[in-house]
Simulated assay, not measured.
Amino acid sequence: MAEPTDTFDDFLPEALRFCAAAPLVDIGANLTHESFTRDLAAVLGRARAARVTTLILTGTDREHAEQAVAMARQYTEAGLALYATAGVHPHDASRWDAGLATAMADLHRQPEVVAVGECGLDFNRNFSSPAEQERAFEAQLGLAASCGKPLFIHERDAGQRMREMLHAWRDDIGDAVVHCFTAERDTLFGYLDLDLHIGLTGWLCDERRGHHLRELVGEIPLDRLMVETDCPYLLPRNLPAKLKGRRHEPALLPWIVREIAHWRGIGEEALANATSDTARAFFRLPANPQSIHQEN
């Protein structure tokens, strides 16, 4: 990959060029989003400069999962490892059919795919009906049980039903993470009781709606906690400088880690090391990040 070394820092002002205290894993980066088409190489260069060394690219439907796999195969520079997830987001659950199930099963066999998802329930917007969402999620729980890969879960305003469905499958599936967790204390402890992992984003940095999360970060065991940008969404609102546009990117993950560490009352390096160790174990990432590509 040719990196535009003379320009890759241009997008971020000096005050936003954070460098993590230890290498980070961004477990949720939507880099197949059209907003990254023009400058993807620069985005990856900034991530590496910020010590965000591993990116899990979120596959929310067949098209984007296939793009994420292709991207993971293409970008194999030293110091940066890309992997993919493959699933159908609850917004698109109405599209679930036998053909899509077969395509997802095929994707889950690819070595670049390290999790089943993004899948789950979203009763906030209901772009697909609750019944359609449950049907697609149930099917993807079955795929996770079959392939043995962990689950990357989306849940919004559906905590009780999500816990019910996961409880019924808990003995059949392996590890699972509720990514971009934003819910309340009872839902958090319900997920922890099910031995789930929790992904935190820049939602914590939002003065309008993230206050309750600041009180909860200390309740999440470090071996269950992972960090993510969910970029290009959820740009932290408390960044110390203005950013052109509203596009979030992996290079800003160290700011989220700084916020979590502050509210948890531990050092940034300790949090970075813990969340990265947890993520590597969860996604079963090889000790040599490039080895997954050498198998192909």
Rank of each mutant, 00 (worst) to 15 (best):
S146D: 12
S94V: 15
F137P: 00
A86H: 03
P150Q: 06
P130D: 06
V113T: 10
V69M: 13
Q140A: 10
E66Q: 13
H91S: 09
A93E: 13
T60Q: 09
A68P: 01
V88N: 02
V116C: 08
C119Y: 03
A86S: 01
M71D: 10
G120E: 14
R62A: 11
E77Y: 05
Q74P: 04
Q74D: 12
Q110I: 02
D92K: 10
A145S: 06
G142P: 00
E66C: 06
A136I: 05
G79C: 05
V69G: 01
D122F: 04
M71A: 02
A98S: 15
G142C: 07
A98Y: 02
G148S: 08
H64G: 10
D157T: 13
T54S: 02
Q110C: 13
A101Q: 14
N124K: 13
A78Q: 13
S146H: 07
I56A: 02
I56Q: 00
H64Q: 14
A65P: 04
L143N: 09
A65R: 00
R125H: 14
L80C: 09
I153F: 07
I153M: 11
Q133T: 08
T54V: 10
L143K: 02
L57V: 15
L121F: 09
A136M: 05
P111Q: 14
F152H: 06
D157I: 11
D157R: 15
T102E: 14
G87Y: 10
G159M: 14
T60N: 12
E118F: 10
T60P: 07
D61S: 12
G99P: 11
E134R: 12
E138R: 12
G59N: 03
Q140C: 01
I56D: 05
E112Y: 09
A131E: 15
D61M: 06
F152L: 09
E66Y: 03
E66G: 05
S129K: 07
E118T: 01
Q140H: 00
H108E: 04
S146Y: 00
H89W: 14
R62Y: 08
R109D: 15
R62H: 13
G79L: 08
H64M: 11
E138G: 07
Y83W: 07
C119K: 04
A145Y: 00
A115W: 02
A139D: 00
G59E: 01
Q110E: 15
T102R: 14
E112M: 12
Y75H: 14
Q110P: 11
H91K: 15
A72C: 04
G79Q: 11
G120L: 11
A98P: 05
L141F: 04
T53R: 11
A93G: 13
C119Q: 04
V113E: 03
R51Q: 12
R62K: 08
C147A: 13
F152R: 10
G159I: 12
L143C: 06
M104I: 15
D106K: 13
L80M: 05
A115Y: 01
T85L: 06
S129A: 05
A84N: 01
L151N: 10
